[in-house]
């Protein structure tokens, strides 16, 4: 056997034998303690539910069924989302739509929220951008029956506003930002390290800005 058969454990240094490094450790904890007590250092805790962590616009939360301008669902009951779903939590029953151009619409569109694993495959699969996800994670149910959300609930989620949209296929605002960032980077105008440092300093400066910075980073 080419491998050694006796382990050689670590040998203590003299300082370690004398418990001296403990003082260094105590200094660390003391520094944190006093710093937090006096509020000089930023506290990492966020005060949920008053204060929320800033999640990105890709967050995979509660689903939303989008509507056409006339208020009807965009969904054409093509079953792609139900097929793509690894948890098989989407239940659709299709019906004949009065408008021949649309052909089909979902009579029933239920998602079992307790089965759902929020993988976003339904959003990827949808060819109509009819199902997207919101930024909403505040969900709790008191029984299994109420966890099956119907199309009416999915169409009017309680947090449907532009700011709280989550995972969806296109991010036009991000595209713009990315293009700008690339241009600036190529022009050598942007200093990423300096920017990160500035952000950190800003975080250290005031508790108001610090919390938002800590939450976003």
């Amino acid at each position: 056997m080419p491998h050694s058969d006796t382990p050689e454990p670590y040998r203590y240094t003299l300082a370690e034998r004398l418990y001296l490094p403990l003082l260094g450790g105590m200094w660390v904890t003391l520094r944190h303690f006093v710093g937090n007590l006096l509020g000089r250092r930023t506290s990492y805790t966020i005060e949920y539910p008053e204060e929320r962590r800033a999640y990105s616009h890709r967050f995979r939360g509660h689903h939303i069924l989008t509507s056409r301008p006339d208020g009807s669902l965009r969904c054409v009951a093509c079953f792609l989302c139900a097929t793509a779903c690894p948890a098989e939590c989407i239940h659709i029953e299709a019906g004949e739509h009065p408008d021949v151009n649309v052909e089909k619409y979902p009579v029933v569109y239920d998602i079992d929220m307790l089965r759902c694993v929020f993988c976003g495959y339904c959003v990827d699969a949808c060819p109509e951008e009819a199902i997207i996800m919101s930024n909403n994670y505040d969900m709790a149910f008191f029984n299994r029956a109420s966890s099956v959300v119907t199309k009416e609930e999915l169409q009017k989620p309680f947090t449907y506003d532009q700011a709280r949209l989550g995972y969806r296929p296109r991010y036009p605002e991000e595209e713009e930002q990315r293009a700008r960032a690339r241009r600036e980077l190529q022009a050598g105008r942007v200093d990423l390290v300096g920017e990160a440092r500035r952000r950190q300093e800003a975080a250290a400066a005031g508790p108001e800005s610090s919390k938002s910075a800590a939450a976003s980073s």
Binding site: P9, Y10, Y12, P21, G24
Partner: peptide, 15 residues
Amino acid sequence: KVVTKNRIWLDRSVG
């Protein structure tokens, strides 16, 4: 700083 050279931890883990 807190643990790596701390003898209390060393005694629990070395060997």
